[in-house]
Amino acid sequence: MRQIRVYNQVFRIEKTVYSIQGIHLPQPVSYRQLAFFVGTLLVMIILNAFPPMNMIDLFLVKFIGIPFLVAWFFTRKTLDGKAPHRFIIRYLEHRLNSQHFARYKNLEKQANKYQYDGVVAYRKCSGGDPF
């Protein structure tokens, strides 16, 4: 079997923003990071109208800290080898799906729970608290 090398990733350069309206950013930001930051900022603005978020007076934490952490997490970390937002979507899709598959075949749900028969061995601690 012959392996064919593909160099698609080499030519896929992520676009970055270096300044906004002439104000230079301390670090270049990708469009993806900027989108997560702005999206989270809009969610925080909407949530600020409802309790308990409107009771928190920490402006920098609500409108800069949380969007920054969300943008960092969703662009830098992976869960199970996937981007976090894709992992969450697939997890919710799996939980909401009524069918379960194994090797692409539908599994029937068991009505009975497993019941174990046999003797369980254990030791009693002499004297008060075991910890």
Rank of each mutant, 00 (worst) to 15 (best):
Q110T: 13
Q9H: 09
I45K: 12
F36Q: 02
E14R: 04
Y114R: 13
V29Y: 06
F63D: 03
P26C: 03
N106E: 15
Y116K: 13
C125E: 07
L47Q: 11
L92R: 05
V17T: 12
G118H: 09
G118D: 10
C125I: 09
I64P: 01
A102F: 13
D80L: 11
P26M: 02
I4V: 13
R12Y: 04
G127R: 13
S98M: 06
R5T: 04
L92I: 09
A111Q: 15
V29L: 14
A83F: 08
V70K: 01
R86I: 12
V120D: 09
D80Y: 10
E14T: 05
V29T: 11
F73S: 02
A49L: 10
Q9P: 00
G81F: 10
F63Y: 15
V38C: 06
I45P: 00
Y122D: 08
N112Q: 15
V17H: 03
N54G: 01
D129H: 11
V38T: 10
V70G: 01
H85P: 00
E108C: 03
I45E: 08
Y122Q: 04
E14N: 04
I20N: 00
A83L: 13
Y114G: 07
R95M: 11
D117K: 12
L69D: 01
I46E: 08
Q9M: 03
R90G: 03
N106V: 14
R32E: 14
F101P: 01
Y91Q: 05
A83H: 05
M55Q: 14
S19A: 14
K77N: 03
Y7R: 02
F73M: 08
Y18D: 11
K105L: 11
K124M: 10
V119Q: 14
T16A: 08
I56R: 01
A111P: 05
I46K: 08
M53L: 15
H94M: 04
T40P: 02
A83N: 06
D57F: 10
Y31H: 10
G22I: 11
E14H: 01
K113G: 10
D129A: 08
G118N: 09
G118Q: 10
H24F: 05
L41Y: 15
E108S: 15
Y31W: 05
V6C: 06
